[in-house]
Computed example of a mutant assay.
Amino acid sequence: MTEAIAFEPTPLERDATFYVAGHRGLVGSAIWRKLEAEGFTNLVGRSSSELDLKDREAVIAFFRETKPKYVVLAAAKVGGILANNTYPVDFLSDNLRIQVNVLDAALEAGVDRLLFLGSSCIYPKFAEQPIREDSLLTGHLEPTNDAYAIAKIAGIMHIQAIRRQYGKPWISAMPTNLYGPGDNFSPTGSHVLPALIRRYDEAARNGDASVVNWGTGSPRREFLHVDDMAAACLHLLENYDGPSQVNVGTGSDVTIKELAQIVADAVGFEGETEWDISKPDGTPQKLLDVSYLADAGWTSSIGLDEGIRSTVEWYRANALSLRG
Results as ranks from 00 to 15, higher is better:
residue 86 T to W: 11
residue 52 D to V: 04
residue 54 K to P: 00
residue 58 A to C: 03
residue 53 L to I: 05
residue 44 V to H: 03
residue 71 V to E: 03
residue 100 V to T: 13
residue 98 I to R: 01
residue 85 N to G: 12
residue 91 F to P: 00
residue 57 E to S: 08
residue 76 A to K: 02
residue 78 V to A: 11
residue 83 A to Q: 09
residue 70 Y to R: 08
residue 67 K to G: 12
residue 69 K to F: 15
residue 95 N to H: 05
residue 61 A to I: 09
residue 99 Q to Y: 10
residue 94 D to F: 01
residue 87 Y to F: 12
residue 80 G to D: 11
residue 101 N to R: 10
residue 47 S to A: 04
residue 100 V to G: 11
residue 91 F to Y: 01
residue 44 V to S: 04
residue 59 V to D: 01
residue 93 S to V: 06
residue 43 L to I: 00
residue 103 L to G: 06
residue 65 E to L: 13
residue 59 V to C: 04
residue 90 D to A: 07
residue 53 L to H: 05
residue 77 K to H: 07
residue 82 L to N: 13
residue 102 V to N: 11
residue 95 N to F: 02
residue 78 V to N: 08
residue 58 A to D: 06
residue 91 F to G: 00
residue 54 K to T: 03
residue 62 F to A: 06
residue 86 T to R: 11
residue 52 D to P: 07
residue 57 E to W: 05
residue 73 L to C: 05
residue 77 K to C: 06
residue 76 A to E: 01
residue 93 S to M: 04
residue 81 I to G: 11
residue 63 F to V: 09
residue 75 A to I: 01
residue 57 E to R: 06
residue 92 L to F: 01
residue 61 A to F: 06
residue 73 L to A: 03
residue 92 L to Y: 00
residue 68 P to K: 09
residue 94 D to C: 05
residue 64 R to M: 15
residue 81 I to C: 13
residue 84 N to E: 11
residue 78 V to P: 04
residue 102 V to Q: 13
residue 96 L to Y: 07
residue 59 V to P: 00
residue 97 R to T: 08
residue 70 Y to L: 07
residue 76 A to R: 05
residue 67 K to P: 13
residue 85 N to T: 12
residue 64 R to G: 12
residue 70 Y to I: 07
residue 45 G to D: 02
residue 81 I to N: 14
residue 78 V to S: 08
residue 85 N to W: 10
residue 89 V to E: 11
residue 64 R to Q: 15
residue 86 T to E: 11
residue 92 L to K: 01
residue 102 V to M: 14
residue 54 K to V: 01
residue 45 G to N: 03
residue 93 S to A: 07
residue 69 K to S: 12
residue 86 T to N: 11
residue 43 L to R: 00
residue 64 R to C: 14
residue 68 P to Q: 10
residue 50 E to H: 12
residue 60 I to L: 09
residue 57 E to P: 05
residue 67 K to F: 15
residue 48 S to H: 11
residue 54 K to W: 02
residue 67 K to E: 15
residue 91 F to H: 00
residue 78 V to G: 08
residue 66 T to A: 15
residue 83 A to K: 05
residue 87 Y to D: 09
residue 93 S to G: 07
residue 50 E to V: 11
residue 82 L to Q: 12
residue 100 V to M: 14
residue 90 D to E: 05
residue 77 K to L: 06
residue 59 V to M: 05
residue 88 P to H: 03
residue 71 V to P: 02
residue 89 V to Q: 09
residue 56 R to P: 04
residue 97 R to P: 08
residue 83 A to C: 14
residue 102 V to L: 15
residue 72 V to T: 09
residue 96 L to V: 10
residue 79 G to R: 07
residue 89 V to K: 06
residue 82 L to T: 13
residue 53 L to S: 04
residue 43 L to D: 00
residue 76 A to F: 02
residue 103 L to T: 10
residue 78 V to R: 06
residue 71 V to G: 04
residue 63 F to H: 08
